[in-house]
Design a protein around this nucleic acid. Sequence first.
DNA 1: CTCCTGAAGTTGACGGTGACAACATTGACG
DNA 2: CGTCAATGTTGTCACCGTCAACTTCAGGAG
Lengths: 210, 210
Amino acid sequence: MLAADSSRPYHHGRLREALVDAGVALARAGGPEAVVLRAASRAAGVSNNAAYRHFADRDELLRAVCERSMSSLALLMEQRVAALPADPDPVAAAWARFDALGRAYVEFATTEPGWFRTAFAVPRTMHSFGPGEGVGASGVGPYELLSARLDELVEVGAIPPERRPRAEYAAWSAVHGLSTLLSDGPLRDIPATEHDQALLVVLDFVARGI
Amino acid sequence: MLAADSSRPYHHGRLREALVDAGVALARAGGPEAVVLRAASRAAGVSNNAAYRHFADRDELLRAVCERSMSSLALLMEQRVAALPADPDPVAAAWARFDALGRAYVEFATTEPGWFRTAFAVPRTMHSFGPGEGVGASGVGPYELLSARLDELVEVGAIPPERRPRAEYAAWSAVHGLSTLLSDGPLRDIPATEHDQALLVVLDFVARGI
DNA sequence: CTCCTGAAGTTGACGGTGACAACATTGACG
DNA sequence: CGTCAATGTTGTCACCGTCAACTTCAGGAG
């Protein structure tokens, strides 16, 4: 008993992608817990259980959506670094790129809280992103973007080589912590000016502590 | 039609607390999303909808559970600081207390991931904890414990006063970020040795950057 | 050209969940 | 002793994930 609407063929054609797209919209609006199979199916104009032809269960759809979110984050970080004005001083340029990375991270988290949470909501049953997943235009993810900038800071002599090992942990923790506190945590309701102050303090703190 | 078990009186007597206790157990085992009205009611030996006599909806129960979780965190931080050996050097003692605070935070997050997430899962509809909520034995919460230690670092001359304003943002972000990355984030599966290294790096980084 | 097979989509059902309404029980207070 | 308001129960509804059985359709074997 097909609906009288003959314009829609029985087979969707690109249902998998349509479901992920719908899941993305749901996640942006309401975070990972809003990624609901039935809602995504409705948005794709398809029946409840059609999704099971393309995903084993909800977690598999959610994982695909999370991967898209992580890619969005990587993309924004790349864009913000690429948009930086040229600086003849290699040290200043390296610091500016490093700074832009952190700013982009926090910008992503605060402008799209639900979407940001989704990036880190990969279901525990399936291991994290593999190579080529959750990456930006350059083919690497946020962590590798950070590592490359830290390497650059060492190369130009901005930080001594002995401080380089595991510096990712420090920088990532500070920026990720601020992002979660501001976007979904106890700092989510502080006024905009205080919000900006917090960002400045943390970025300055990272540059000093690295 | 009451169950034949006459040992259980019709009225529970302490149902509200029993529901929160059950919610706590659920949250410790499965995080905030596992705090489910029906499961809590079952655990309390009571019917599905009895909870609605004490909580307007699920969010109100969840909020009570979150408040307990935040208190647990504050309590552990207080304990770890109190357990520190005496140090005659006031500067060293202040640093040790500051360090212990951060260690306790990460310890809480990694030993009880679901319980830690719960502390920060306060429903958005109801504003954060008020005074006297989410506090430890000393009557203040984690944020105030941190502030007091930062004040102490200034008093003993460990850090210059001009660095004091908003230092909470920096220290909290770094420790909170590491906690989430390790307990529920992309770093959740790194080996124990690497886990410890990350903690050392971040704590050292905080002490230097403050 | 026909038939048939397998992929893709649909319908129906079940258990779990939050929530509402109506009903039952009971202790406390006049 | 009777009344009533607080407390707990049952019944019901909508939404969700998931399984099983059925339907549609495109493309290849003969």
